[in-house]
Amino acid sequence: MSLYDDAVLVLKGYEDQEELRQAYLEHLERHPDGLWKACSAGHITASAMVVDPERGRVLLTLHRKIRMWLQMGGHCEPGDATLAAAALREATEESGITGLTLLPGGPVRLDRHHTPCAWHLDVQYAALAPGGAVEAISDESLDLRWYPYEEVAGVADESVVRLLAATRARL
């Protein structure tokens, strides 16, 4: 199965945010290259909110280009077999944490936002950090920091706050 086929199946199986979900599916129908950064009409991206539920905290990255505190995530790559694999790869690369696992049940949210390269149609997952996880800043980040759940709204925008709420509801 191709990444494109996986994306369509994941989105068809996602049971929330009906209008946005349908917009993602229509985007893929109109743009067979709609998973790739080269698609200037926008592209599907994959991200993951890295959480440590035992300590009630979330790991955010201060994105180098956007200069905002965000979850880990980014563009799909040809080696990604699934959207979930893309989200897990991005979370691992950007957090430096090995042994992350995605929460079961598929994506926790969808979020469409404009970035310097194009519209991102983000498929958002949640990743659990293993006990004793140690983060390491990647080239894509200015900083990485663990925030208690209750402090996220003070540093991040509403899309991150919504993703955290959806993640916590799934825990």
Results as ranks from 00 to 15, higher is better:
residue 42 G to P: 02
residue 44 I to H: 12
residue 48 A to V: 03
residue 49 M to N: 09
residue 50 V to E: 01
residue 51 V to Q: 01
residue 51 V to A: 01
residue 53 P to N: 04
residue 56 G to N: 08
residue 57 R to T: 04
residue 59 L to R: 03
residue 60 L to Q: 06
residue 64 R to K: 14
residue 66 I to G: 05
residue 66 I to Y: 13
residue 67 R to I: 03
residue 67 R to H: 13
residue 68 M to D: 09
residue 70 L to E: 08
residue 73 G to Q: 03
residue 74 G to D: 05
residue 82 T to I: 10
residue 84 A to L: 09
residue 84 A to P: 01
residue 85 A to D: 12
residue 86 A to I: 12
residue 89 R to P: 05
residue 90 E to V: 05
residue 92 T to G: 02
residue 92 T to D: 01
residue 93 E to D: 13
residue 93 E to C: 08
residue 93 E to A: 13
residue 97 I to Q: 00
residue 99 G to Y: 09
residue 101 T to Y: 01
residue 101 T to E: 14
residue 103 L to A: 12
residue 103 L to Q: 07
residue 105 G to I: 12
residue 106 G to S: 11
residue 109 R to H: 13
residue 109 R to I: 00
residue 110 L to H: 05
residue 110 L to K: 07
residue 111 D to Q: 13
residue 113 H to W: 13
residue 114 H to D: 15
residue 114 H to V: 15
residue 115 T to Q: 10
residue 116 P to Q: 13
residue 117 C to F: 14
residue 118 A to Q: 14
residue 120 H to N: 08
residue 123 V to K: 00
residue 126 A to C: 01
residue 128 L to G: 04
residue 131 G to Q: 09
residue 133 A to P: 10
residue 140 E to T: 10
residue 141 S to H: 03
residue 143 D to W: 14
residue 144 L to E: 05
residue 145 R to E: 07
residue 145 R to H: 12
residue 145 R to M: 06
residue 146 W to T: 05
residue 146 W to A: 07
residue 146 W to D: 09
residue 147 Y to M: 02
residue 147 Y to C: 00
residue 147 Y to D: 00
residue 149 Y to H: 03
residue 154 G to E: 15
residue 157 D to N: 15
residue 159 S to G: 14
residue 159 S to I: 04
residue 164 L to S: 02
residue 165 A to M: 06
residue 167 T to R: 04
residue 168 R to T: 04
residue 170 R to T: 09
